[in-house]
Write a protein that binds this DNA or RNA. Structure first.
Length: 291
DNA sequence: TCGACGCGCTCCCTTACTTCA
DNA sequence: CGTGAAGTAAGGGAGCGCGTC
């Protein structure tokens, strides 16, 4: 996993991708609402809108009835504030949804078990040892896909990031895996792709921000210079010269430029920025060389 | 025709395990 | 050899579209 800042940022920035482009969204927390649509190829695409805070609680594992692993450890379940709201008040949809999803989870488990039973006919190809497969250790053992399996899945993912049922079945058969495993692999692969894209987009936005900050700073400075030019142009001519370039002849009491003509002095004023008025009233201590 | 419901799919968050520095 | 970070397979909650009743 990446550092916590990136992870938090990833939670905040929900990037939604489609074939035709990229959109950005902001959110936080665990639960979320979404839209989904069915594309022309039969794949469903979701448009996630926002996140909601979540609360994680421990509870006894139900994994033993899944058939995949036969341990009795603890897992966690995420209780969104939407579910909490359903339990306490408001949101009739939440209540219905929660109830519906409880049933759905049960159905899902039954489906997985059924899938498992069908797939028991063929061996699961993985790096899990025989001892692990018989579950004698009682701990959840994680199977690792072989390089060949990963490579084929990658190739398939390059062709299409989502699978229809037929493609899933076919791929599972070719890889000697359960369809559920193929499904999970694609799910995780999409998540990884999205995370990487998010990192790239974040970097891009960061640079944009820096660039705009610099540009803003530059424009502010330019604006200040223009304001000063406008201010000095409204003054008597002699006040437009920097004090250092002016001198007064003690005999004739006429002010003259010490270093050259008016144009030169004006140009200097423009280039170095207009001096503050107080500087114009500085001491005329230069020698009266001009007279 | 409309609403309720179940199903299948996706998403996200999280956990548990493996690998590696 | 122990340990923490990173990678990843999998579990589970939730929303949505679609078909059926």
């Amino acid at each position: 996993m990446r550092n916590k800042e990136e992870k938090a940022l990833f939670k905040m920035m929900n990037m939604v991708h489609h074939e035709d482009g990229l959109t950005l969204g902001l959110g936080y927390g665990g639960g979320r609402t979404s839209e989904s649509k069915l594309s022309s190829d039969g794949h469903r695409h979701h448009l996630f809108k926002h996140y909601e805070p979540s609360l994680t609680l421990g509870r006894p594992s139900e994994d033993s009835i899944h058939g995949g692993y036969d341990e009795a450890t603890t897992t966690t379940t995420t209780v969104t504030n939407m579910a909490a709201a359903a339990a306490s008040h408001s949101s009739p949809n939440s209540a219905v949804s929660s109830f519906s999803n409880v049933n759905r989870s049960a159905v899902k488990r039954e489906r997985d078990i059924a899938s498992e039973e069908v797939d028991l006919e063929r061996p699961v190809s993985s790096r899990v040892s025989d001892e692990d497969e018989d579950g004698s250790t009682g701990a959840r053992k994680k199977l690792r896909l072989t390089k060949e399996q990963s490579a084929l899945l990658e190739d398939s993912f390059k062709e299409h990031s989502t699978l229809n049922p037929k493609q899933k079945q076919d791929l599972a058969h070719r890889l000697n895996l359960r369809p559920r495993q193929v499904e999970v692999w694609f799910q995780n692969r999409r998540a990884r792709t999205k995370l990487k894209q998010t990192e790239v987009d974040c970097e891009f936005l960061k640079r944009c921000c820096e660039s705009l900050t610099d540009e803003n700073r530059r424009l502010q400075k330019e604006l200040q210079e223009l304001k000063m030019i406008k201010y000095t142009s409204s003054m008597p001519l002699y006040m437009q010269f920097p004090a250092a370039t002016l001198s007064m002849c003690p005999s004739c009491e006429r002010i003259a430029s010490a270093g050259g003509g008016e144009d030169k002095a004006k140009a200097a004023t423009f280039l170095i920025g207009a001096p503050k008025p107080t500087h114009l009233y500085g001491p005329f201590t230069n020698s009266p060389a001009a007279c």
